[in-house]
């Protein structure tokens, strides 16, 4: 009897002290979360993209790659693909350049630095939907304060004005302006994160290495291109990855600003997938749109991460 109790106690103790069990228990919620909320929908969407499922019924006949084939020939989809890359690429370039400049400013010490830092980080703290609605009003076709400022400055709204005789620019309505406006807002939104990432990179370069380069006789550009930037390459890789992922996965921006219009000219993959699959009802087509870039993004992420690891020092 006594030994039995001891053994029972021993088993319980062993279980309680087991690192393996503890590790399993601690990591289980994350795994359940990922599998249930990301894994299952992901597998489901792969299946949908290969089937002719609609919101109108439950049966999902397998159609192979038909959805994808249809997309490739569709001019709206081609435009959307182009828009997505344009938005990501332009955002990336502008964020890296402006982020590096802002980080260079923030790494110096000056009076009122905390205020500047606060202002720079502010866009990141605002809820995306609210700030984008704010931008929607800024771009309003009649009451846009930007247009008003331009008119007051004499650049718009009278014959011979630099930006034309019309009273408004129609930021979200005409020519290339809608895409440019979307890029502008996206840059505004991602720049704080980019700045913080680059700032972290700058801070991670030991001061002595910079000073050594000074003493070794290197001028500003030699230091920038041979010391600072190469040493920050892994950090830039992270910034590139984040910008791409954020831009590729975000639909709020386009959804609120233009809803893909005018005439489907400003769709990105996420909004097109939403309008095709959910509002349009063809779930299969929508899933195909959403998944179209998956292999490309996977490859891109893998390459960037590999480069970062190789350059790690």
């Amino acid at each position: 009897m006594a030994t039995e109790v001891l053994e029972e106690y021993g088993t319980r103790q062993r279980l309680l002290n087991s690192d393996r069990l503890l590790a399993g228990v601690l990591i289980a919620p994350a795994i359940i979360y990922i599998v249930a909320l990301m894994g299952v929908p992901f597998v489901l969407s792969i299946y949908y993209s290969l089937s002719d499922v609609t919101t109108g019924g439950t049966d999902a006949p397998f159609v192979g790659l038909a959805n994808f084939r249809a997309l490739i020939g569709d001019p709206t989809f081609q435009q959307t693909l182009y828009n997505t890359f344009l938005l990501s690429g332009m955002t990336l370039v502008v964020v890296l350049v402006l982020g590096t400049i802002q980080a260079e400013l923030l790494i110096r010490s000056f009076r009122g630095k905390w205020l500047v830092r606060f202002l720079i980080l502010l866009p990141w703290t605002a809820p995306v939907s609210l700030s984008v609605i704010g931008w929607l009003w800024m771009f309003d076709s009649i009451f846009s304060p930007i247009d008003w400022s331009l008119r007051e400055a004499g650049l718009l709204g009278h014959p011979g004005a630099l930006l034309g005789p019309a009273t408004n620019l129609y930021w979200l309505g005409s020519g290339g302006l809608p895409m440019a406006s979307i890029i502008l807002v996206n840059v505004w939104r991602i720049l704080p994160l980019g700045t913080v990432i680059v700032l972290a990179g700058l801070n991670s370069i030991p001061r002595e290495v910079e000073e050594q380069a000074l003493i070794d006789g290197a001028g500003y550009f030699r230091r920038l291109f041979q010391i600072t930037l190469p040493m920050m390459l892994p950090i830039f890789g992270i910034a590139v990855l984040f910008t791409f992922v954020f831009t590729f996965t975000d639909m709020v921006l386009v959804y609120i600003l233009t809803r893909g219009g005018p005439a489907n000219s400003t769709h990105v993959l996420t909004t097109l997938a939403f309008f095709t699959g959910v509002q349009g009802g063809s779930l299969g087509q929508g899933a195909a749109v959403a998944l179209f870039m998956f292999p490309v993004l996977t490859a891109l992420s893998a390459i960037v991460l590999m480069l970062i690891r190789r350059r790690e020092v």
Partner: peptide, 9 residues
Amino acid sequence: FQSYALYPH
């Protein structure tokens, strides 16, 4: 320098 400050890359 004490840390040698070699360029790591």
